[in-house]
């Protein structure tokens, strides 16, 4: 993978988003936990399920009182449906092929989206009667209804089975006020041409910069353009692995960087010799209190080079006299 320049990337908030739901949605979710489906009455009396906090026509707040809610369903009729051939495991409600359906629950005036487990597309049609299949480990979430199933003619919907995850004797179980939303999105991100050139350079122990034809200014680790003009940095320029610290901070917070396992450490802006833009880097090889503006530094390369940012481990002092302030003052 290191040389393909296409990297796996995933986006997932660790532990999941902690959503607070407010009183209206909370009442609906609390009822789901009890095996009931509540609709909220809109300003025009329409029974809306799932409940909305605000009327879709007038925008007035609705559902502020208990009597604004009515139990609907649990059975209903399919108003429209689509077929899922390949369920998304871990995301979709079912792991076998199923239908998504807009279901008008008995007594409701709007439709509700949910899954219908009916085997094949032939098992469902617009108008089909369906009823919920409840989970027994209900937590107060739309997925407490595992899915809907098709009802036979004259069949009555079964009540939700008792919960198996009841709170202990001493536990007061309050209304549902929140929910967790944990998910991961996966990406495969290409590096792009200019970053690839730069990383390939690092793999050979070189720092590659780019320059636009109309400019003399060289960008280390160019991302493709001279950001002043948008002109492509089509001319490759090799840059020294030495430079000076222009400014920096001392980091006392643990865990921000795998490259700096111990605090305190110094994160610096570095002006490399032959480059006109700033690079960020760690400074090691001296006490943090000895790091200063203008200090000359050199890249410390990894023992094994690879086309990766990690080929430069950090920068360390060269012991040379400091760069004069004039040299870097315009880059602060």
């Amino acid at each position: 993978m290191a040389n393909s320049f296409i990297a796996e990337h995933s986006l997932e908030y660790p532990g999941g988003y902690q959503r607070s739901v407010g009183p209206v949605l909370g009442r609906f979710m609390t009822a789901l936990r009890e095996g009931k489906i509540l609709a909220v009455k809109g300003v025009d009396g329409r029974k809306i399920v799932p409940p909305q906090e605000y009327d879709p026509v007038t925008s007035d707040a609705i559902g502020s009182k208990a009597e604004d809610f009515v139990e609907v369903g649990p059975a209903g009729r399919v108003v429209s449906w689509s077929w899922v051939n390949e369920p998304r495991i871990g995301k979709h409600p079912l792991s076998v092929p199923f239908a998504f359906a807009l279901i008008r629950l008995d007594g409701a005036d709007t439709t509700m989206l949910h899954a219908v487990d009916c085997g094949t597309p032939e098992g469902i049609a617009t108008g089909t009667r369906v009823a919920p299949r409840w989970r027994t480990d209900r937590v107060g979430k739309i997925t407490d209804i595992e899915c809907f199933t098709v009802m036979a003619d004259g069949e009555q919907p079964v009540l939700a089975p008792a919960r198996t995850n009841l709170p202990g004797d001493d536990t007061e179980e309050g209304d549902v006020t929140g929910m967790n939303s944990q998910f991961r999105l996966d990406y495969r991100v290409p590096a792009g041409a200019s970053t690839r050139r730069y990383l390939n350079g690092l793999g050979e122990g070189k720092i590659i910069g780019g320059r636009a034809p109309s400019s003399t200014e060289v960008y280390a680790a160019s991302r493709g353009t001279d950001p002043k003009t948008g002109e492509p940095t089509s001319i490759e320029v090799e840059i020294a692995d030495t430079g000076c610290v222009t400014t920096f901070c001392i980091v006392n917070i643990p865990g921000l960087s795998e490259l700096a396992p111990e605090i305190p450490y110094v994160s610096a802006q570095i002006l490399l010799d032959g480059a006109d833009n700033m690079m960020f880097g760690l400074i090691r090889g001296c006490a943090v209190e000895d790091v200063h503006m203008g200090m000359r530094v050199k890249a410390k390369w990894a023992d094994e080079l690879a086309p990766s940012h990690n080929s430069i481990l950090y920068y360390e002092p060269t012991g040379e006299p400091d760069a004069p302030y004039e040299h870097y003052k315009d880059n602060l």
């Binding site: 400014t247 901070c249 980091v251 490259l259």
Partner: peptide
């Protein structure tokens, strides 16, 4: 952290603290 981007080594404050020093 985005792939192929230089690793962030100091968090948001780590970006602005050097400017303050300057």
């Amino acid at each position: 952290p985005m792939p192929f981007s230089a690793p962030l080594v100091a968090g948001a404050g780590g970006f602005f603290a050097p400017l303050i020093r300057s």
